[in-house]
């Protein structure tokens, strides 16, 4: 038997290579973001810098229209997440509670859509949005993100809904609740952890999505963050790497912190003590 401390050290040593691979890009990103411009390409490369420049962020914000892109990203991600949830919850509930013809087929269909990369469909989607007159409109992204995420959200919600005992709803009916009342006052409060998890996943997927955003959005005022940052790199004679990296830091770190804080609320074992 190893002592607990020894075991912890051993596990960390085993995990260390993975941690390095994951953290290295972040480290480069951060160090570059706070460097003065003329220290960007020193040889040999170093981790240090002569001056910690917060001003990079302010300059970047103005120069790259970061605020506008941030608002676009927030609008698209929040709306797509809400839309996906509003449509998935009833679908998942029906899949979990009712028997209907073609249920198995429908489940398989949902799974199959997950196996297709959006890039395969990008041309068709572009033509569809052309017909709908939605090219260069953020709502085209809202619709496609919601649609692409729904297979996952339905699947995820359904498996959690299955774990909520049917008896609870039946008890509510016996207590005098209609189906709708029992859904709102008994079922959904218990489903909150699952709803939060799926919301986070959908939000992150939408927040990071690049290919569709690049295809659908033609004018720079409508760019979402990934496209906006990309546009600072692609097709330029001179790339302001410290601004690009400052942009990526701002686009990723706050979201990461927010969600690592949120996930503490996920595993609360709401259904414990209900039955059994």
């Amino acid at each position: 038997m190893m002592s607990k401390a020894k075991r912890s050290i051993l596990y960390w040593i085993i995990l260390a290579p993975l941690v390095v691979v994951i953290l290295f890009p972040f480290a480069v990103m951060f160090v570059t973001a706070v460097r003065p411009r003329d220290e960007l390409f020193v040889y040999p490369p170093t981790w240090g810098f002569s001056e910690f420049r917060w001003e990079n962020f302010a300059e970047m914000w103005v120069k790259t229209n970061f605020g506008g892109a941030l608002l676009n990203s927030l609008y698209v991600s929040i709306t797509a997440t809400s839309a996906a949830l509003i449509l998935s919850i009833p679908a998942a509930y029906a899949m979990s509670r009712y028997r209907f013809a073609g249920k198995g087929l429908y489940k398989n269909f949902l799974l199959m859509t997950q196996m297709m990369s959006p890039i395969v469909l990008v041309l068709g989607l572009f033509r569809l949005m052309m017909t709908l007159g939605l090219v260069n409109d953020l709502n085209s992204l809202v619709i496609t993100y919601a649609a692409f995420n729904m297979a996952f959200t339905i699947w995820m919600l359904q498996s959690y809904f299955n774990s909520i005992p049917r008896d609870l709803e039946e008890a509510a009916w016996m207590d005098g609740a209609s189906h709708l009342t029992s859904l709102i006052r008994i079922f959904l409060p218990l489903a909150v952890p699952a709803i939060v998890v799926t919301a986070i996943f959908t939000f992150i997927n939408s927040w990071n999505e690049f290919v569709l955003a690049l295809t659908m959005m033609r004018s720079s005022e409508d760019f979402t963050l990934p496209v906006q940052i990309y546009s600072q790199v692609a097709g330029r004679y001179q790339v302001e790497w410290h601004h690009v990296m400052a942009g990526t830091v701002l686009a990723t770190v706050p979201v990461a912190i927010l969600f690592s804080w949120l996930q503490r609320y996920l595993i609360r074992g709401m259904a414990l003590g209900a039955v059994k």
């Binding site: 039946e170 008890a171 009916w173 218990l190 709401m270 414990l272 209900a274 059994k276």
Partner: peptide, 18 residues
């Protein structure tokens, strides 16, 4: 069920956990 005026005790109690 809601209009039958029947009360029921379930095998696993089915208490509302929240």
């Amino acid at each position: 069920p809601k209009s039958r005026d029947i009360a029921m005790v379930f095998q696993n109690y089915a208490l509302y956990p929240h």
